[in-house]
Amino acid sequence: MNKGAIRHMAVFTLKSAPDTEETRAFLRDGAEILSAIPGVNHFEVLRQVSVKCDYQYGFSMEFADQAAYDAYNNHPDHQAFVAERWDTQVAAFQEIDFMV
């Protein structure tokens, strides 16, 4: 483990159906916007395949430390994505933060 590094994961289900342009746009735009924020490392878009989990997708990213994670959360591009896209297009979600 890297002392202080954080892996942030958000697993979620979208209001739009899988394999629609709305879903593809959300995942594509999320990756483009969020991965460009300074301090974001190893950004991934994930598709859930387990029958034991109700969520459909995930965003995973790493931060060098708590300060980088805090800067990401407060970044205007992150806040705009949450307000304009996440809050309107996500039906349900769970956030998980691990020390790595």
Rank of each mutant, 00 (worst) to 15 (best):
F43K: 00
F43N: 01
F43I: 04
V45M: 04
V45Y: 02
V45F: 02
V45E: 04
L46R: 08
L46A: 09
L46N: 02
L46H: 03
R47Q: 12
R47F: 06
Q48F: 00
Q48S: 11
Q48R: 08
V49Q: 07
V49S: 12
V49W: 05
V49E: 08
V49H: 09
S50H: 04
S50E: 05
S50A: 09
V51C: 06
V51L: 09
V51N: 14
V51W: 00
K52Q: 13
K52M: 12
K52G: 10
C53R: 15
C53H: 12
C53E: 15
D54A: 13
D54G: 14
Y55Q: 12
Y55R: 15
Y55E: 11
Q56C: 06
Q56F: 03
Q56A: 14
Q56V: 02
Y57K: 05
G58I: 11
G58N: 09
F59M: 07
F59R: 04
F59K: 03
F59V: 07
F59Y: 15
F59S: 02
S60M: 14
S60R: 15
M61F: 11
M61N: 10
E62F: 04
E62K: 07
E62C: 11
E62L: 07
F63D: 02
F63S: 04
F63N: 03
F63K: 00
F63A: 01
F63E: 03
A64H: 07
A64P: 01
A64Y: 00
D65L: 03
D65K: 01
D65N: 13
D65I: 01
Q66M: 15
Q66T: 11
Q66L: 15
Q66R: 12
Q66E: 12
A67K: 15
A67Y: 09
A67E: 15
A68M: 05
A68E: 09
Y69Q: 03
D70F: 01
D70G: 07
D70S: 10
D70N: 12
D70C: 04
A71N: 10
A71Q: 11
A71M: 10
A71F: 10
A71H: 12
A71D: 10
Y72F: 13
Y72S: 03
Y72M: 08
Y72A: 06
Y72H: 04
Y72N: 06
N73R: 11
N74T: 08
H75E: 07
P76L: 03
P76Y: 03
P76G: 06
P76V: 06
D77S: 12
D77P: 04
H78W: 03
H78E: 06
H78C: 05
Q79M: 14
Q79F: 04
Q79G: 00
Q79P: 00
A80Q: 11
A80N: 09
A80H: 09
A80R: 15
F81N: 01
F81R: 00
F81L: 03
F81A: 02
F81T: 01
V82W: 02
A83D: 13
A83G: 11
A83P: 00
A83W: 10
E84S: 06
E84H: 06
E84A: 08
E84L: 05
E84P: 00
R85Y: 09
R85T: 13
R85L: 14
